[in-house]
């Protein structure tokens, strides 16, 4: 069903493994600039995967593109790759011209815009109209990830038909999927570390208390991944699916980071160790584009509006694979 997407994701992962090394991530963080990495990433063409084949893309739908976004999270791509991929497709769907090579962030309402300092453009919401602007991020880089707390907006390059939810939904959906990808890597790193680190003459993973924590970690990661996958359905993001995905990812984030860092002990937070590259980003996405209470309230309202059926009906009609 998703063979094209999986095939492309495998090729993408191979590329990321060679390209987005921990050193490359740190180089972007230290210089607070995209450097050559963006050009190489963009040249690979994956950021156009959602565009129609006639427009030089791979013609993927959201479900097919999900593995790519997940991979961007898993490899901790420090630049707005997934955001750009989605923004380009939203713009292309309405025939808007996008500057070649543009890195675009999705600037829905949020205290912070992940990668805001690392992109030249932003898809912003102007009174309900998704608008592509030249933009530079500023303010504090709160998580040392190149996020911005302010956007200095310049020239308007394109406007899309009025849709007050569109930018926020895309931003939240992408964040949830990136979180899911990063969490999968955090789980993998925690399992590896638990197998290597010895205390009391045994590897940590032999202690039942640690095993139980890792089981909970796996549960949180897998349910977040399934929820994020459900948000990447159909041709445009659906508010109910996005609400469920971002709410789940946000709820899971605290426990995932707490358990992963608990298992790593002190070394996990050190600059030298890779775990913190991931958990800082998970926390940044947790704070961006609506919290679990925000999305929870929207999801709850949607459930109440569907008053006639049971919650099982609601899940089946609005949140199941194949129900779009």
């Amino acid at each position: 069903m998703n063979e094209v997407g999986n095939f492309l994701a495998e090729a993408f992962c191979r590329q990321l493994a060679g390209l987005v090394t921990p050193e490359a991530i740190r180089a972007v963080e230290d210089s607070a600039s995209p450097g050559e990495l963006w050009r190489t990433l963009d040249d690979s063409g994956f950021a156009d995967a959602l565009l129609p084949e006639a427009a030089g893309g791979a013609g993927l739908d959201l479900a097919q593109a999900f593995p790519l976004v997940l991979a961007a999270g898993e490899y901790c791509v420090p630049l707005p790759f997934a955001e750009t991929m989605v923004a380009r497709s939203m713009l292309a769907a309405h025939g808007a011209d996008v500057p070649a090579g543009a890195a675009i962030v999705l600037a829905g309402p949020s205290a912070i815009i992940p990668c805001g300092r690392l992109a030249g453009y932003a898809l912003v919401d102007r009174d309900g109209v998704p608008t592509l602007v030249a933009a530079g991020g500023s303010g504090s880089d709160l998580f040392r990830t190149g996020a911005a707390t302010e956007l200095d907006e310049g020239e308007v390059l394109a406007t899309l038909p009025r849709d007050p939810d569109a930018v926020l939904l895309a931003a939240a959906a992408v964040s949830a999927a990136l979180m899911a990808g990063a969490m999968a890597r955090v789980l993998e790193m925690s399992l590896r570390y638990a197998g290597e680190r010895q205390q009391f003459g045994r590897s940590l993973g032999k202690f039942q208390a640690i095993q139980q924590q890792l089981a909970v970690l796996a549960e949180q990661v897998l349910s977040t991944q399934v929820a994020a996958r459900s948000a990447f359905t159909g041709s445009a993001f659906d508010p109910i699916r996005v609400a469920a995905a971002k709410c789940r990812a946000n709820e899971a984030a605290t426990q995932v980071c707490n358990i992963a860092h608990a298992i790593h002990g002190a070394i996990g937070v050190t600059a030298e160790f890779d775990l913190q590259l991931y958990t800082r980003r998970i926390k940044q996405w947790q704070l961006a584009f609506g919290s679990e209470s925000y999305w929870g309230a929207r999801l709850g309202q949607a459930r109440i509006a569907a008053a006639a059926g049971t919650t099982a009906d609601f899940l089946r009609r609005h949140l199941a694979t194949g129900s779009e």
């Binding site: 996958r229 995905a245 789940r248 679990e292 209470s293 459930r303 199941a320």
Partner: peptide, 23 residues
């Protein structure tokens, strides 16, 4: 027109059920 806190509580529960039904 529920209290927003109640709606959020309901929605958060639904968000946990959704991936489980998928599983």
């Amino acid at each position: 027109s529920p209290d927003p806190a109640d709606a959020a509580r309901l929605g958060r529960l639904v968000s946990r059920l959704a991936p489980l039904r998928e599983m």
